[in-house]
């Protein structure tokens, strides 16, 4: 793992609402992710995991503090530029409702690249499709795919633009254990073999066990940081 910081949050605070109803979702939280690492963010419900991910990925803007991604300060960018960064530098895998129902699997996979006006690199595309076993399913609509297949399409979409970071919010949350295991193994392989940086929000300790480093959140703050002891084979 190289030690270049690819994504970071500095003193990130996010407050929802005002006055009496104000909720501090993130409390001056600082965090760093090195390129080529697999990170898990854990914590009880309401601890601020999703909020942190939204801020790090430029989906939401923090109340104060800075967020950096691939050397760009996201917190300084206007919405239009932020959107560009999202489609070119960031891959997303959500828990459910990951795919556009009117587009085929193939069209879903290439959507962010096409929105950026780019063509996928054919060799890279072929290898991603091949490694995820999606060759037979490319012409199918999401409604014709199983939950596991849908998540694999989402992974392919996230990988294709070779993003700086892939953010995954509970990616196994809607899957059975066999499919979860397959997905986590695949993400692990992407990190190990391709050097892809992945930040995954999860509340499942078994999922977090795949990561190189796990941040435990509570009340919008990092409580503990845990590194994996033995490298997984």
């Amino acid at each position: 793992m190289s030690e270049t910081v690819i994504s970071a949050g500095v003193q990130v605070t996010k407050v929802y609402g005002v006055g009496e109803a104000a909720v501090v979702a993130l409390d001056a939280l600082s965090i760093e992710f090195a390129a080529g690492g697999f990170y898990a963010i854990m914590g009880p419900s309401g601890s601020g995991k999703s909020t942190l991910m939204h801020c790090l990925a430029g989906l939401d803007s923090p109340t104060s503090g800075q967020v950096y991604l691939a050397g760009i300060e996201l917190t300084a960018l206007p919405e239009k530029e932020l959107t560009k960064v999202r489609r070119e530098q960031i891959g997303f895998i959500f828990q459910s409702f990951n795919l556009i129902p009117t587009l085929t699997a193939a069209q879903n996979i290439t959507l962010p690249l096409e929105l950026a006006g780019k063509q996928p690199d054919p060799a890279h595309y072929a290898s991603v499709i091949e490694s995820l076993g999606l060759g037979e399913r490319l012409k199918h609509l999401p409604s014709q795919l199983s939950g596991g297949q849908q998540q694999r399409v989402a992974i392919a979409r996230a990988l294709l633009p070779r993003p700086a970071v892939i953010f995954a919010d509970e990616p196994t949350g809607a899957l059975d254990s066999a499919n979860s295991l397959q997905l986590l193994n695949y993400l692990r392989t992407c990190v190990t073999n391709l050097g892809q940086t992945i930040v995954m929000v999860t509340h499942d300790p078994n999922a977090a066990a795949f990561a190189d480093r796990t941040f435990h959140l509570s009340d919008g703050r990092i409580q503990t940081v845990q590194d994996r002891e033995a490298p997984r084979v």
Binding site: L59, T83, R87, P101, A116, R157
Partner: peptide, 16 residues
Amino acid sequence: TRENALLRALGLQTGQ
């Protein structure tokens, strides 16, 4: 609503 939000997350500009 959700689908449009997903499109925005994936990089569709408001103008688009």
